[in-house]
Every structure is written in C-alpha cells, then in structure tokens.
C-alpha cells in the first residue's frame, strides 16, 4: 500500500497542519517508508494471537470519585493567547 500526496495533504488538513508543496512531497516519502516497515510487520503470522490495543499489562486503573483542588481562573487562562472576563476567547464559531 502506498500513500499518495493528496492523501498526505488530506491527513495534514485533518490535523490542521499547513504544508508547503515541498514538505508534502518530503512527508509522502517519509510516511511511505514507515508504511513499508509496517508492511514487513504484517508478514508475521499472527494466527491465534489475540488483538491488543495496549502494550502494557495493566487494567482497571481507576480513581475514587472524590474532588480535589482546581486551578484559579487566572491560572487556567495564563497561557491563553486571548481571554476576557474569565473566558477563553477564540475566533468566532458560527452555529446557526
């Protein structure tokens, strides 16, 4: 399987990355190198091996439902490019 440049551009757009034509070309080559590696992995016989989504042998890590301290509004907003009256300010999102 080979990724096309337009697929790379599409994925970049989904991730909100702006790529120059040169970058898109370069990343297409890099990503195809990675894909080739995975293709090699796919040659392994995994018959009888259960699929897994996590590599660490842990499960059922929970916390109890108790409350703890929060940041102040000032602290929460400290890194925001823009804020106003305790709110984060973002470019207008039109819903209707």
């Amino acid at each position: 399987m080979k990724l096309s440049k337009s697929e790379v551009e599409h994925v970049a757009k989904l991730a909100r990355l702006e790529l120059s034509a040169e970058e898109a070309d370069r990343l297409t080559t890099h990503l195809n190198g990675i894909m080739a590696h995975f293709e090699k992995l796919q040659q392994l016989d995994t018959e009888g091996v259960a699929p897994t989504s996590h590599v660490i042998p842990m499960q059922n890590v929970f916390r109890e439902d108790v409350t703890g301290p929060c940041l102040t509004a000032e602290e929460a907003l400290a890194n925001a490019p823009e804020s106003s009256d305790g709110y984060f300010v973002v470019p207008q999102i039109v819903e209707v």
Partner: peptide
C-alpha cells in the same frame, strides 16, 4: 457566541 464582534467565549 457573542452577538457582536468576531469572537466566541469558552
């Protein structure tokens, strides 16, 4: 969504 201006608050 602010009724005026071009920003939203979160």
């Amino acid at each position: 969504h602010a009724s005026v201006g071009n920003e939203s608050l979160v």
